[in-house]
Nucleic acid binder design. Sequence first.
DNA 1: CAATAAAGTTAAACTAGATTAACATTATTT
DNA 2: AAATAATGTTAATCTAGTTTAACTTTATTG
Lengths: 193, 193
Amino acid sequence: MKKQPLLDYINKHIDLTVEEKAFLTSKVKYRKYLKGQYIVQQGDVCKYECFVISGCTKTFFVDEQGQEHIVMFAIEDWWASDMGSYITQTPADFNVQCIENTEFIMFSYDDIEDLYREIPKLERFFRLIIERAFVASQKRLVRNFSLSAKDRYLYFKNQYPKIEQRIPQYMIASYLGITKEFLSKIKGQLLLE
Amino acid sequence: MKKQPLLDYINKHIDLTVEEKAFLTSKVKYRKYLKGQYIVQQGDVCKYECFVISGCTKTFFVDEQGQEHIVMFAIEDWWASDMGSYITQTPADFNVQCIENTEFIMFSYDDIEDLYREIPKLERFFRLIIERAFVASQKRLVRNFSLSAKDRYLYFKNQYPKIEQRIPQYMIASYLGITKEFLSKIKGQLLLE
DNA sequence: CAATAAAGTTAAACTAGATTAACATTATTT
DNA sequence: AAATAATGTTAATCTAGTTTAACTTTATTG
């Protein structure tokens, strides 16, 4: 069943009964998007938290100078959304776009409170997930302050070898907060070492 | 009662019964620290999530070159800890130090699961708190990528006027990810505008 | 398979912010 | 009130990373 990967993932954090699993799967929806399609657009209200079954997304925003900044990537077993927009139901700061054909399980804002009511354990589940996401975000902040562009690249390469392989280099540069030209230079330097 | 500010704060997010409030207050501890004292030290395991009743803390880490980087400040109604260390009970990346005499309500790691068991609503409470913290962290990441040092300073000044007033300038520079000399220059430039 | 678009490279000129170091001001302690 | 420590300023020099622009390589499409 298409929703199985979500159940497996949840199962790592909390135990659900058969009935709870049934209720959960009845309340979330499976959907496929094509490469290039948007899940959320800057300015729209984000209606879904999306669990990635397969494929890959980028979350980015476009600044006043028209420059694109990639905030995160999401692959299998990650979450994609503009959480700020989702939790407050206000216009999104970010875009979420599929950079491969991507399958999701989507948690609608309209249904999530029903889910929490029927399955209070999900509060714990999402607390655990978001705790980890917060910690990762803090650590990334720290790396951006304390590491050079080269070291940030090496960290990324080492930490997410799978992601590095399937994503164009200019997007990695954007994620690292540097220009594609400079990343190209860094890679050149690393080859000579 | 010293723990009242915590109850008021929690009350903004969830409703607790009289018994729940009693249980909660029995399980958390009030404590005062002096300016300069540490709540967590880099390398130690973080045992507490600390709610600030009064005073101010800085969360920072020291990099390999011995440079201090301030990750966040916490004043009244904020939380201070190394959440990464707390949730995984592994050595902390960060220090949390009081930069004023500071009063806390402390949630011990050893008691928190009891609290969740007795008061499941607290799972929701902490989920809501951490969602917001995560969103704030993401937005800060974005500002660091897309704004100049000057604009980051102006944002900080505008967003946290109370914090700016009570904290030495060199700490603000550290929080913004710039040197104290450069912040001084920025402030000089702003006076001429 | 030719044509076009997308992605990556190279190098010169430039800039935001760091570094260093000397000095000024403000708190704190004795 | 003098002495010391903490904080803040100024200016010259330096550097990591940007910008611009021309070019190359790799994918995609008609």
